[in-house]
């Protein structure tokens, strides 16, 4: 394990890159954490409340989520700042506290990580603004960068080692978030939510993300997939990346199955054992940074850790094995744009 140096990272990401390399060099994988939102629910957060406000209102609840993840075996935890941007926080009438709420989310994570003294990486979560970029919506790149910059600066001030841009569906929004991280001097990782027939809802395929990352002016440390549909879909998405030779680390962060309503609360139907299978399949599919998303508790993380530690190697999984272990895919992969029978505006005969 690495020493916790307590230093903030530079924009070049030397510190966090060294941490990644050390962990990956010694054992070939990094275990990321599970969910934040659903775990806060389990601790009593109300439906429709702002998770980010809990950073100041109930910091112990947020610390408990962090602590559980680290105790469960996570090497990397995400801060409670997913919706910590002013476009989203304005719903709760706290847009003016964006920087503060993000900073505190990272401080709490940093402090909790320090309790363990094992060099846990603190990754500052940055989710989508929830707004549409031009021309479909009104969000311009300048405004988007500005929104993300405020969040990134807060996370950096709070001691985040790296920014973690996640659950994005529009590649242009990702580009704005990446630019903001660069301007804030924070290295970053990026994952999209491929929830619609193998693409994001905006139609972005894994190959589009890989191309973007390869050409990015401010390249990420790692890219991959998070959230989306169930764990089976996510592994199928992950399998696309090694074919693309992305030249950076690959991230898999799947939901623990699909959400069900049971006994008055949301419950994801993927068991800890299923997520252990998922973790192994993710590693065999080429992912190096592996964690869970919605519904993943510390119990899942424990099993995932145990499985990764005892992993003896294995071939790239076939789709049959993925379905057999993780369940059916939510939908078939859609046709490639090149092969699509797209209609064209007809011209006069």
């Amino acid at each position: 394990m690495l020493e916790d140096d307590g230093e903030l990272s530079g924009a070049d990401g030397q510190d966090v890159r060294a941490k990644f390399d050390a962990l990956l060099g010694s054992r070939g994988w990094i275990l990321a954490d599970g969910a934040t939102g659903t775990n806060l629910f389990a601790l009593g957060m109300g439906a429709g409340d702002s998770p980010e406000l809990l950073n100041v209102q109930q910091p112990e609840m947020v610390r408990a989520v962090y602590r559980n993840a680290i105790a469960g075996g996570a090497d990397l935890i995400l801060t409670n700042s997913f919706g910590g941007n002013r476009a989203r926080l304005k719903l709760h009438a706290v847009a003016g506290r964006t920087r503060e709420l993000c900073q505190i989310s990272a401080q709490l994570a940093h402090e909790t990580a320090s309790e363990f003294g094992n060099g846990t990486i603190v990754a500052g979560s940055m989710g989508p603004t929830g707004e549409l970029m031009e021309p479909m919506g009104v969000l311009t790149p300048d405004v988007a960068v500005d929104i993300f910059l405020e969040q990134a600066e807060g996370l950096k001030a709070g001691g985040a080692d790296v920014a973690w841009i996640e659950t994005i569906s529009d590649i242009r929004e990702l580009d704005c978030a990446a630019q903001a991280c660069f301007r804030a001097g924070l290295p970053y990782c990026a994952t999209l939510s491929f929830d619609t027939a193998g693409r994001t809802m905006m139609g972005v395929a894994p190959g589009d993300l890989a191309n973007w990352a390869a050409d990015a002016t401010w390249p990420p440390l790692a890219i991959g997939a998070n959230c989306g549909a169930g764990a089976a879909d996510l592994i199928r998405t992950i399998l696309e990346f090694p074919k693309l030779k992305i030249g950076m680390h690959l991230i898999a962060k799947a939901n623990a199955g699909i959400p069900k309503w049971e006994k008055g609360a949301i419950h994801y139907d993927g068991s800890p054992d299923l997520m252990a299978d998922y973790a192994e399949l993710a590693l065999r599919s080429g992912a190096k940074i592996i964690g869970g998303c919605c519904g993943t508790t510390f119990r899942h993380i424990q099993r995932m850790r145990a499985r990764l530690e005892t992993f003896k190697g294995g071939a790239t999984p076939m789709l049959e094995e993925i379905v057999g272990k993780l369940g059916q895919f939510s939908a078939d992969i859609g046709p490639d744009p090149k092969d699509r029978n797209r209609r064209q505006r007809r011209r006069r005969p």
Binding site: L132, R340, R342
Partner: peptide, 19 residues
């Protein structure tokens, strides 16, 4: 209705359908 069918079938995505 035609747009809806191709959206459902993963041929069109949100940007095209919004337009």
């Amino acid at each position: 209705r035609i747009v809806g069918i191709d959206f459902r079938d993963g041929i069109l995505f949100v940007p095209e359908v919004l337009l």
